[in-house]
Lab assay of single mutants.
Amino acid sequence: MGFKLLSKLLVYLTASIMAIASPLAFSVDSSGEYPTVSEIPVGEVRLYQIADGVWSHIATQSFDGAVYPSNGLIVRDGDELLLIDTAWGAKNTAALLAEIEKQIGLPVTRAVSTHFHDDRVGGVDVLRAAGVATYASPSTRRLAEVEGNEIPTHSLEGLSSSGDAVRFGPVELFYPGAAHSTDNLIVYVPSASVLYGGCAIYELSRTSAGNVADADLAEWPTSIERIQQHYPEAQFVIPGHGLPGGLDLLKHTTNVVKAHTNRSVVE
């Protein structure tokens, strides 16, 4: 069995187990497998329904001669939608809004960016022009300005110390501490036991640490421990890039980060 097929099978099995364990909360999309990078042309966006009122959005972007996937989250909030992270750029984010209108038909009224990198804030200006209120932590807003990236308009308070959590509509926002970046936030959907790890969490097929220019490698494993301790009931975990899975993604990420750190020390 090929690795790609095995990865998709694991996603399907995880979703099936969740649907059985929580039949009222989960209505997993039966329309197909989780979209992969090879299936999404740059400039297009796919939506994948995880649970009743919960979707991931998947886009792709060219970077350094390669094409990478990027995940975000959409959560229903009454007759409105909360968006977590842009679709990595203005063109993708405009396509995301169009796809949401086509498939869901509810307005996106608020959006949260989970850290300051372009795959999370690139497209904020498109959201703002569409009347979406954009939010991020003060740290993310400051770092985005320093980096020359787009800056969300509103500040999220109460997320300055490791372990801080605040309720934001249908989700809980959690600051686990520094990891992929010093400002990275985690998003949890309690009604569906869905954990969105953003770039602080890796997919299972990833074996290298990737972009760690703004990471705190020493603190990252401790931050992941905080996530595990705060959300032990999480059933569906979405990484910032690639295929979702279960809580095993947290341990896998820790292993990859520690291996990278150990290699760096040896070198």
Score class of each variant (00 low, 15 high):
residue 1 M to Q: 04
residue 4 K to Q: 01
residue 4 K to N: 09
residue 4 K to E: 09
residue 6 L to H: 15
residue 7 S to G: 10
residue 9 L to A: 07
residue 9 L to K: 02
residue 10 L to R: 08
residue 10 L to C: 08
residue 11 V to D: 04
residue 11 V to A: 09
residue 11 V to Y: 13
residue 12 Y to Q: 15
residue 12 Y to G: 09
residue 13 L to I: 15
residue 14 T to M: 14
residue 14 T to C: 10
residue 14 T to R: 08
residue 14 T to P: 06
residue 15 A to M: 01
residue 15 A to Y: 15
residue 15 A to P: 01
residue 16 S to I: 01
residue 16 S to G: 13
residue 17 I to L: 04
residue 18 M to A: 03
residue 19 A to C: 08
residue 19 A to Q: 11
residue 21 A to G: 08
residue 22 S to F: 01
residue 22 S to W: 14
residue 23 P to Q: 12
residue 23 P to E: 04
residue 24 L to I: 10
residue 24 L to C: 11
residue 25 A to T: 09
residue 26 F to Q: 10
residue 28 V to G: 09
residue 28 V to R: 06
residue 28 V to D: 04
residue 29 D to G: 07
residue 29 D to I: 14
residue 29 D to P: 09
residue 29 D to L: 06
residue 29 D to T: 08
residue 30 S to G: 07
residue 30 S to L: 07
residue 30 S to A: 06
residue 31 S to T: 04
residue 31 S to K: 10
residue 31 S to W: 08
residue 32 G to K: 06
residue 32 G to P: 14
residue 32 G to S: 09
residue 32 G to T: 07
residue 33 E to H: 06
residue 33 E to V: 07
residue 34 Y to R: 09
residue 34 Y to E: 09
residue 35 P to H: 09
residue 36 T to E: 09
residue 36 T to D: 03
residue 36 T to V: 06
residue 37 V to P: 05
residue 38 S to A: 08
residue 39 E to Y: 13
residue 39 E to A: 09
residue 40 I to S: 08
residue 40 I to K: 05
residue 41 P to V: 05
residue 42 V to E: 11
residue 42 V to C: 06
residue 42 V to A: 06
residue 42 V to Q: 14
residue 43 G to C: 13
residue 43 G to T: 09
residue 43 G to S: 11
residue 46 R to H: 01
residue 46 R to A: 03
residue 47 L to H: 05
residue 48 Y to L: 05
residue 49 Q to P: 05
residue 49 Q to S: 06
residue 49 Q to M: 03
residue 50 I to G: 10
residue 51 A to Y: 13
residue 51 A to S: 09
residue 53 G to H: 06
residue 53 G to I: 13
residue 53 G to C: 03
residue 53 G to R: 06
residue 54 V to E: 12
residue 54 V to A: 06
residue 55 W to I: 04
residue 55 W to V: 03
residue 56 S to E: 08
residue 56 S to N: 15
residue 58 I to G: 06
residue 58 I to F: 03
residue 59 A to Q: 15
residue 60 T to V: 10
residue 61 Q to C: 06
residue 61 Q to L: 05
residue 62 S to Y: 09
residue 62 S to F: 02
residue 62 S to I: 01
residue 62 S to W: 05
residue 64 D to M: 03
residue 65 G to L: 07
residue 65 G to H: 00
residue 65 G to F: 14
residue 66 A to T: 06
residue 66 A to H: 03
residue 66 A to E: 08
residue 66 A to N: 04
residue 67 V to Y: 10
residue 69 P to V: 09
residue 70 S to P: 02
residue 71 N to V: 05
residue 73 L to G: 06
residue 76 R to N: 04
residue 77 D to S: 02
residue 78 G to N: 14
residue 80 E to W: 13
residue 81 L to M: 12
residue 84 I to P: 00
residue 85 D to R: 00
residue 85 D to E: 13
residue 85 D to K: 00
residue 87 A to Q: 14
residue 87 A to D: 00
residue 89 G to L: 07
residue 89 G to N: 02
residue 89 G to T: 12
residue 90 A to G: 12
residue 91 K to Y: 12
residue 92 N to Q: 14
residue 92 N to E: 13
residue 93 T to I: 00
residue 94 A to T: 12
residue 94 A to W: 12
residue 95 A to P: 05
residue 96 L to N: 01
residue 96 L to A: 08
residue 96 L to V: 13
residue 97 L to N: 01
residue 97 L to E: 03
residue 97 L to V: 02
residue 97 L to S: 13
residue 98 A to R: 09
residue 98 A to C: 02
residue 98 A to F: 02
residue 99 E to G: 12
residue 100 I to S: 11
residue 100 I to C: 09
residue 101 E to L: 10
residue 102 K to L: 10
residue 102 K to N: 02
residue 104 I to G: 02
residue 104 I to P: 02
residue 105 G to R: 05
residue 105 G to L: 06
residue 106 L to T: 05
residue 107 P to R: 12
residue 107 P to C: 11
residue 108 V to R: 00
residue 108 V to D: 00
residue 108 V to L: 03
residue 109 T to R: 07
residue 109 T to F: 09
residue 109 T to K: 12
residue 111 A to E: 13
residue 112 V to R: 00
residue 112 V to E: 00
residue 113 S to T: 13
residue 113 S to F: 13
residue 114 T to P: 00
residue 115 H to C: 00
residue 118 D to K: 04
residue 118 D to V: 14
residue 118 D to L: 14
residue 120 R to P: 02
residue 120 R to L: 01
residue 120 R to M: 02
residue 121 V to N: 15
residue 123 G to N: 15
residue 124 V to Y: 11
residue 124 V to S: 14
residue 124 V to D: 15
residue 125 D to V: 04
residue 125 D to N: 00
residue 126 V to H: 00
residue 127 L to C: 05
residue 127 L to D: 01
residue 128 R to L: 13
residue 128 R to N: 01
residue 128 R to H: 14
residue 128 R to F: 13
residue 128 R to I: 04
residue 129 A to Y: 06
residue 129 A to G: 07
residue 131 G to V: 02
residue 131 G to Y: 15
residue 131 G to M: 15
residue 132 V to P: 12
residue 133 A to C: 15
residue 133 A to P: 05
residue 134 T to S: 02
residue 136 A to P: 01
residue 137 S to V: 06
residue 137 S to R: 04
residue 137 S to D: 03
residue 137 S to C: 13
residue 138 P to Y: 15
residue 138 P to G: 04
residue 139 S to L: 04
residue 140 T to H: 00
residue 140 T to W: 10
residue 140 T to L: 04
residue 141 R to G: 13
residue 141 R to L: 12
residue 142 R to H: 01
residue 142 R to V: 05
residue 143 L to S: 14
residue 143 L to I: 15
residue 145 E to L: 02
residue 145 E to P: 00
residue 146 V to R: 07
residue 146 V to C: 02
residue 146 V to Q: 08
residue 146 V to K: 14
residue 147 E to T: 01
residue 147 E to H: 01
residue 147 E to K: 04
residue 148 G to E: 06
residue 150 E to F: 00
residue 150 E to G: 03
residue 152 P to Q: 14
residue 152 P to I: 05
residue 154 H to D: 15
residue 154 H to K: 03
residue 154 H to S: 07
residue 156 L to S: 03
residue 158 G to C: 07
residue 159 L to N: 13
residue 160 S to H: 04
residue 160 S to T: 08
residue 160 S to N: 14
residue 161 S to R: 12
residue 161 S to Q: 03
residue 161 S to D: 04
residue 164 D to E: 14
residue 164 D to V: 12
residue 165 A to V: 11
residue 165 A to N: 07
residue 166 V to A: 04
residue 168 F to W: 10
residue 170 P to G: 11
residue 170 P to H: 01
residue 171 V to I: 13
residue 174 F to E: 11
residue 174 F to I: 05
residue 175 Y to W: 11
residue 176 P to F: 04
residue 177 G to W: 03
residue 177 G to K: 02
residue 178 A to F: 04
residue 178 A to R: 07
residue 179 A to M: 15
residue 180 H to Q: 04
residue 181 S to I: 02
residue 181 S to Y: 01
residue 182 T to R: 03
residue 183 D to N: 04
residue 183 D to S: 03
residue 184 N to Y: 01
residue 185 L to Q: 14
residue 188 Y to C: 04
residue 189 V to A: 12
residue 190 P to Y: 15
residue 191 S to T: 04
residue 192 A to L: 09
residue 192 A to P: 14
residue 193 S to G: 08
residue 193 S to K: 11
residue 194 V to P: 04
residue 194 V to I: 02
residue 195 L to W: 00
residue 195 L to M: 15
residue 196 Y to I: 11
residue 197 G to P: 05
residue 198 G to F: 01
residue 198 G to K: 01
residue 199 C to P: 01
residue 200 A to V: 08
residue 200 A to W: 02
residue 205 S to T: 06
residue 205 S to C: 12
residue 207 T to H: 14
residue 208 S to H: 10
residue 208 S to Y: 03
residue 208 S to L: 12
residue 209 A to G: 11
residue 211 N to I: 04
residue 212 V to C: 08
residue 212 V to S: 12
residue 214 D to K: 06
residue 214 D to I: 10
residue 215 A to R: 09
residue 215 A to E: 11
residue 217 L to C: 15
residue 217 L to T: 04
residue 218 A to I: 07
residue 218 A to W: 05
residue 219 E to Q: 13
residue 219 E to C: 05
residue 221 P to R: 12
residue 221 P to W: 11
residue 222 T to F: 13
residue 222 T to K: 14
residue 222 T to P: 07
residue 223 S to C: 12
residue 225 E to P: 15
residue 226 R to N: 14
residue 226 R to D: 02
residue 227 I to Q: 01
residue 227 I to L: 06
residue 228 Q to R: 09
residue 229 Q to G: 10
residue 229 Q to T: 13
residue 229 Q to K: 05
residue 229 Q to H: 15
residue 230 H to A: 08
residue 230 H to E: 04
residue 231 Y to C: 14
residue 231 Y to E: 05
residue 232 P to Y: 10
residue 232 P to N: 15
residue 232 P to V: 14
residue 232 P to W: 08
residue 235 Q to K: 13
residue 235 Q to A: 12
residue 236 F to D: 03
residue 236 F to M: 04
residue 237 V to R: 03
residue 237 V to P: 03
residue 238 I to F: 02
residue 238 I to H: 05
residue 238 I to A: 12
residue 239 P to C: 12
residue 239 P to T: 11
residue 239 P to Q: 03
residue 240 G to R: 03
residue 241 H to V: 04
residue 242 G to T: 13
residue 243 L to M: 02
residue 243 L to T: 13
residue 243 L to Q: 15
residue 244 P to S: 11
residue 245 G to D: 09
residue 246 G to N: 06
residue 246 G to L: 02
residue 246 G to R: 05
residue 249 L to P: 05
residue 249 L to Q: 10
residue 249 L to H: 02
residue 250 L to M: 10
residue 251 K to P: 14
residue 252 H to F: 04
residue 252 H to C: 12
residue 255 N to T: 10
residue 257 V to P: 14
residue 259 A to P: 09
residue 259 A to G: 07
residue 259 A to I: 14
residue 260 H to G: 06
residue 261 T to Y: 14
residue 262 N to E: 06
residue 262 N to H: 09
residue 262 N to W: 10
residue 263 R to D: 02
residue 263 R to Y: 15
residue 264 S to D: 10
residue 266 V to L: 07
residue 266 V to G: 10
residue 267 E to P: 06
